[in-house]
Design a protein around this nucleic acid. Structure first.
Lengths: 204, 204
DNA sequence: TCGTAGATTTACCAATTGGTAAAAAACGGA
DNA sequence: TCCGTTTTTTACCAATTGGTAAATCTACGA
């Protein structure tokens, strides 16, 4: 039995757990929770379905585990924003990190988007306990910059929403972009345009 | 039998077809294609499952019909953009129309987002045949404005992507926003912030 | 009012779903 | 090498899925 409080996960446990997580990320990010099947995850992971249920108690536990791990990755770029750094530089660097995540971790972005789209039924609590405090903290930091005259006055909540939406768009709506911009170096142009946009918005 | 080429749809046909479409919009937009079930749609519509299959050939036909109808609604705000109008005014009005659509038609926005997230398996053709030409046309219009010195020089593709992402974000990620901004008048602030943002970006 | 086309229900079905029990196999330390 | 533990497979299951056939009911024009 593989309880959450086992002493030492064996090498096999570690390898297979990771395989399952990776396969689940594939499947859940493409079809959403209800559209994903254990059989698909099993096939993708190269394991049998009962074997997967040997490592995880059920479909929901796999999904929840995935979302928990994702939350850390997801908050990281915002955590790095430094209150003592150069205001515009810090925000542009944050935009850059978010854009890099869309390019390098598109599955994670889509998993997150799927969950929120469906009303965050399995992540509402995490949003409240993890995202909300961080969001409030960093909003205060940016508001401080604005109050000190280091940035133009903009509604801070919606500034952050616009950073999230513009950057994540490139992962979540890739299917659309690839139709409209076939064969283009999308991320290079996006980097340039978003930098220009937020500079124009925030420069006094 | 109710073929596509029936002479006259009866009052009952019209009413039930609309009911089914509405219920399907509810269910598909919340769970995606694979996560939605005919039983759910039937219950939501207040009809029996076989009765629904009397009006539509199957689950896929319901979904495809929904997406086709949606495409028209979706392209409308962009079609209205007038090459002979005031450049900045036209773009800000477009942003406003898209934002209004997020507020008034959130289910449609999420249905669209779900489909694109999953790789647009049932809409790729529509994107190519309907969206792409319109996109190219309007990009040319905006590029013309920029070339004539009526707007600041910005990558036009990514300008439009940023309009889509920032406005649709308010419908698609509502579950997240409602956690971070409880009890706020989100759309009023969004309108103001987005207007400020695109004005700053596009003013010379 | 009556006949019929249109609309709805009842009773199914095969395939797929998430999940289980238990046997079999592989592993690893003594 | 042996023995107990961990891992994997085989063989299932009940519930749900999309979908069908046919009987039944209902609306409505002649």
């Amino acid at each position: 039995m593989s309880d959450t409080l086992d002493k030492k996960p064996s090498r096999i446990q570690l390898r297979n757990r990771r395989r399952i997580m990776d396969a689940a990320l594939d499947v859940f990010s493409q079809h959403g929770y209800r559209g994903a099947t254990l059989d698909q995850i099993a096939i993708t992971a190269g394991l049998s379905k009962p074997n997967i249920l040997y490592y995880f108690a059920g479909k929901e536990e796999i999904h929840v585990t995935l979302l928990s791990q994702l939350m850390e990755t997801w908050l990281d770029p915002l955590i790095e924003m430094d209150a003592d750094g150069d205001p515009l530089g810090e925000i542009l660097a944050y935009v850059q990190r978010k854009l890099d995540m869309s390019r390098d971790l598109p599955r994670e972005s889509r998993l997150f988007a799927n969950e929120i789209l469906q009303g965050a039924p399995r992540m509402g609590a995490h949003l409240q306990s993890d995202l909300k405090p961080l969001f409030d903290e960093k909003c205060a930091v940016i508001q401080g910059w604005m109050n000190r005259g280091q940035l133009a006055q903009v509604n801070v909540h919606h500034l952050i929403f616009s950073i999230w939406s513009t950057t994540q768009h490139y992962a979540d709506f890739e299917a659309q972009i690839s139709v409209l911009e076939p064969g283009k170096d999308t991320y290079t142009d996006a980097t340039q345009t978003l930098k220009q946009m937020f500079t124009a918005l925030l420069t006094l």
